[in-house]
């Protein structure tokens, strides 16, 4: 009873914080920060999707961004002047999730027997195939408009006026993103505590024993790929509407690795950890980009290192530090923490 009340109070507190957060950030720091906040939410959705495949089921996927691309292009094709279609958001997002989920199974089916590094290489190839397809599908029939990308996509929201007070579209987008991110969090939490969630972890722990327990590993793995991909598809659709422009170069290998870093850095398999990882890896590089230039100017009177390369440099250092001092991630799941401690104990005794 007391725990129930505490839980409700906690949820309410998070709700209020999420509701007023954009005003604090928007008023205090400006619209650039609002954009970053919206991007952080997109990455949370992406990272939670990848977490199902990598964190729960233990299938290393390096081509995850392909599903983001599929979702983005579906939105771009169905709501832009490119084909003259202007479908509403609520119709496109479920479709994007569905198609991305199907692509997830398409990737999953031929890779069912692969694990670890072999799987990583195949998924990496898959991600590149999708990107190259998007790049080249402008001839003989122009579907994706090739490397030029699709511009003029319908926006997710317009600036509106409430009680004579102008509200930037970034705020409405924020609330839309928060709602969908929360939906994804709830779905992930429920899946984790279901028989399917247990089956995913069982496959990660020991695939042969999982089969012997009567788990149809083929179906359960395909389901993991499809679920993860569908989250990516939703995030991709939102990305397209948010940027109002998509081109194949947004969906390169580096993006896949970035999302994987969020999952690993935050704490694989742990939902709060993955969310933290996504926020940290969205905000920190942006901070460096904004501050690295002016700070050098103030200190030395000129810029020695280009802020863009500095960003990657510091990003690399941060990753190494985390791997050195918190190899299980910033917020590890209790299970994973035990795994590392166990390994450390064995290291001492053997």
């Amino acid at each position: 009873m007391y725990a129930q009340k505490k839980k409700i109070a906690g949820v309410a507190l998070i709700g209020v914080a999420l509701a007023i957060l954009p005003f604090v950030i928007g008023m205090g720091f400006g619209n650039a920060w609002m954009r970053m906040l919206d991007f952080a939410l997109l990455y949370i959705m992406l990272a939670l999707g990848l977490n199902i495949v990598v964190g729960f089921a233990g299938l290393l996927d390096l081509g995850y961004i392909a599903f983001y691309a599929v979702g983005a292009y579906i939105y771009a094709l169905l709501a832009s002047p490119h084909f003259g279609l202007h479908w509403p958001l609520w119709a496109i997002l479920p479709l994007g999730a569905l198609v991305a989920g199907m692509f997830g199974m398409l990737l999953g089916a031929p890779t069912l027997r692969l694990r670890g590094d072999y799987l990583a290489i195949v998924t990496l190839g898959f991600g590149e195939i999708i990107r190259i397809f998007l790049n080249n599908l402008n001839a003989p029939i122009n579907i994706t408009n090739g490397p030029k990308g699709i511009a003029g996509i319908d926006p997710l929201a317009k600036n509106i006026e409430i009680f004579g007070y102008a509200l930037h579209s970034l705020y409405l987008i924020y609330y839309l993103f928060v709602a969908l991110a929360l939906l994804i969090v709830v779905v992930t939490m429920r899946l984790e505590k279901s028989r399917l969630g247990r089956a995913w972890v069982a496959i990660r722990e020991d695939e042969i024993a999982a089969k012997a327990c009567g788990i149809n590993t083929r179906n359960v793995k395909l389901l993991a790929f499809a679920m993860g991909a569908s989250f990516g598809g939703v995030a991709g659709g939102l990305f397209a509407g948010f940027q109002q422009f998509v081109s194949p170069e947004s969906f390169g290998l580096f993006e896949s690795i970035m999302v994987l870093c969020m999952v690993v850095l935050g704490g694989m398999g742990n939902i709060p950890g993955v969310i933290l990882g996504a926020v940290v890896l969205t905000v920190l590089p942006e901070l460096f980009r904004q501050w690295a230039g002016p700070m050098q100017m103030a200190l030395f009177g000129q810029t020695y290192i280009d802020p863009e390369s500095m960003r990657l440099l510091l990003f690399g250092i941060a990753l190494i530090l985390v791997m050195r001092f918190r190899p299980m991630g910033l917020l590890p799941s209790s299970r994973r923490k035990a795994e590392f401690e166990h390994a450390a104990e064995e290291g001492v005794t053997s």
Binding site: R198, V201, A202, E205, D206, A209, G214
Partner: peptide, 20 residues
């Protein structure tokens, strides 16, 4: 071949997969 990082209870619960 147990699911090493799952609890004893969870291990047996995985065994129920087929019958649920």
């Amino acid at each position: 071949r147990l699911f090493a990082e799952m609890s004893a209870l969870e291990n047996v619960m995985v065994g129920r997969h087929l019958r649920s």
